[in-house]
Computed example of a mutant assay.
Amino acid sequence: MTSLAAELLDWYDRHARALPWRVGPRERARGTRPDPYRVWLSEIMLQQTTVQAVKPYFDAFTARWPDVSALANEDEAEVMKAWAGLGYYSRARNLKACAEAVARDHDGRFPDTEEALRALPGIGPYTAAAIAAIAFDRPAAVVDGNVERVMTRLRAMETPLPDAKPQIREETTALVPTHRPGDFAQAMMDLGATICSPRKPACALCPWITPCAGRAAGIAETLPRKAPKKAKPTRHGMAFVVERADGAVLLRRRPPKGLLGGMSEPPVSAWGEGVAKDDLAAVPSELDAMGLDWRRVSADVRHTFTHFHLELAVWHARAPLEAEAPDGCWWSGANALSGEALPTVMRKAVEAGTRR
């Protein structure tokens, strides 16, 4: 084991974060092994999402589906409902597919190698390395955003991301110990999350203060360097919120593939950079026969996705109590709306359309 790895593990033994999916260093030393299911679930949820946002979802998922077989046997619509609000919804679809594959092809047990893990739905190189290291103590290089920041500062790498990624992985791999690689992976994450922060890193508290080349050069806070981001385009669209006399709202399900696939929504128009927001010719065909009187809500709904901004004009109409839901739609009662698989942008649209 290198001295750097030993120093980091010593720091981790004293300062490891307590996280609901983690087996801490003291518990590991007493022989408690991490549950691969909980490690996998947390790593999928943590993709592009903060620890604080993930905690309540993780607790809810593990309470409802305590193991991978329970999740595999659940209806996909229920999983999507439980995921609503966490974002990046392809993760939820892959989560269900992966659980089914583990239950069907691996007797309910996650494989313990990076190669076998990468063959499962929704598990890429990073997630495979994280599960292999944390759950099975395989010596794998686990490189997330926190680790990228730590390594570029430790080695004073001035090559901008993403071009620096191969060097970061090479340098990280060289540090991974054969003893306690899972703890080492989590220690690297904790160091980046708590000490080596993006702004004003707490260098005085860092176990690597002496060997950190970025600190010695006075450039630590400027690292990692990043290539300029392309400006995001803004797309427009229309959301049509139909409210029945008893407060129920008309919903439909989005196609299973693509953005927000399989989630619920009020009927919407197509989205695009040239789409008009006041053209009622864009009313979805399933609403035509309802004979509704539309009014535009004053405030548009705005939401930002990874690659574009979206502005939705919200239109509202009232329907009589006896109105039947068109094919492919259903009425969701006021008490049921909170449990629907509505992504954040669609929940915003419903709230805007039904606000008094």
Rank of each mutant, 00 (worst) to 15 (best):
S3G: 15
E7L: 14
L8M: 06
Y12F: 15
P20Y: 05
R22I: 03
V23M: 00
R26W: 10
T32A: 15
L46P: 09
A53M: 13
E74C: 05
A77I: 08
V79M: 11
V79R: 06
A82M: 15
L86N: 10
G87Q: 10
Y89M: 01
S90F: 06
A92D: 09
A92F: 05
L95C: 05
L95E: 13
E100Y: 00
A128S: 07
A128R: 05
A129K: 02
A129N: 11
A130F: 04
A132W: 01
A133V: 03
I134W: 04
P160D: 03
P160Y: 07
A164E: 02
Q167P: 00
E171S: 07
A174L: 06
A174P: 01
P177W: 09
T178K: 09
T178N: 08
T178F: 02
P181T: 07
G182I: 08
A187S: 14
L191S: 15
G192V: 08
A193P: 07
A202N: 14
T210S: 12
P211G: 01
C212R: 13
G214V: 02
G218A: 08
L223P: 09
P228L: 03
P228W: 02
K232A: 13
A245S: 13
L250A: 11
K257R: 11
S264T: 10
G272K: 00
E273D: 01
V283C: 03
S285K: 15
M290T: 01
F308E: 15
L312T: 02
P326M: 14
D327L: 15
W330Q: 09
P343K: 05
V350C: 07
G353Q: 04
T354H: 05
